[in-house]
Amino acid sequence: MESPSAQTDSWSPSNYSYHARFVSTIPQDLVSLLSPKSHERILDIGCGDGVLTFQIQQMCKECIGIDKSSRMVEAARAAGCKDVRVVDGGRLKEWAISEGFEGTFDAVFSNAALHWIKNQEAVVEGIRTCLKLGGRLVLEMGGKGNVQVIEKSMASALDKRGYNGASLSPWVFPSQETYSSLLTNASFQISSINLFPRPTKLPTDLRGWIDTFGHLYIQNLDDKEKEDVINEVIEMCKPEVYNEKDGSWTIMYVRLRVIAYLV
């Protein structure tokens, strides 16, 4: 299996911490829903810089955090996480088999990560491989309609320059119905699944958000083209996300939250 660390890693832990700390601070109740037990082994998919992973590790017997970005994994280790590894979540089943983790986890947790994996069937199959029978999945990810104004603006700006903007999107934002079917077909019993809006006021501005999360859209463009696209996207989004009164930027996040059990 090719190591994700050998691939281009454009993630910036410093950008993430400065522009997007809300990703780990807003959904604190997700860890409460996970409710880690002292005897449990838990897998955290898309651990990022390890803020939530570290919390979970203090509450259970063992928590392994995985992330495709070697830079984010290094940041998680620097933050005190005990066991974090560079793993591509889209190849989770292959990793679990090669490392002897088939059916060994009591729970799988993921926050704001699974929508970065294009092959949703593969990651759900990987989760099923990792879980014990009766084990639980607790996750939150972007759902249908998430950051829609940015996604449409980015596609439009890229289309104008001869690219297929929609095809360059790094995200998959499933509907509640689509994800329910995906889990049910993979032998999960859904305890709860909810799609809900979460308007999110940015700690900095839209450029900072794009630098942090939108970089994969434009990673293959030259510097001038990148700058032109970013400026155009900001102008297109401004009427919907910018508040002239206080100079703040608010993005409409839509989250898909799931609790399910392997049966």
Rank of each mutant, 00 (worst) to 15 (best):
R71P: 05
S10H: 08
T204I: 01
C81W: 02
F188E: 03
S156A: 15
I218N: 00
M236T: 07
A166T: 15
E240M: 13
Y253C: 11
D67A: 08
V124F: 02
D222I: 06
G103E: 12
G143I: 02
L92Y: 00
I193N: 00
S192M: 10
I230S: 10
T8R: 07
E102N: 10
F101A: 13
W11S: 10
V84A: 14
K37M: 11
N185P: 01
S156C: 14
G126V: 00
D222K: 03
E2Q: 10
A78H: 08
S175V: 09
E62P: 10
N164P: 05
I193M: 07
V108M: 03
R128M: 14
L195E: 09
M236K: 07
K160C: 11
I193V: 08
S181V: 05
T184R: 13
G135Y: 04
T178I: 14
S10I: 14
L52N: 02
I259E: 10
V263E: 12
A122H: 03
Y253K: 05
S10Y: 06
A186W: 01
Y18A: 15
Y261S: 09
R255P: 08
S153P: 12
I64V: 15
E74I: 12
K144A: 11
F196I: 09
T212E: 00
V258S: 07
N243C: 11
N15P: 03
R161V: 06
A76F: 12
L43S: 12
P174K: 07
I56M: 13
C237Q: 05
K144H: 09
H39M: 15
H39L: 15
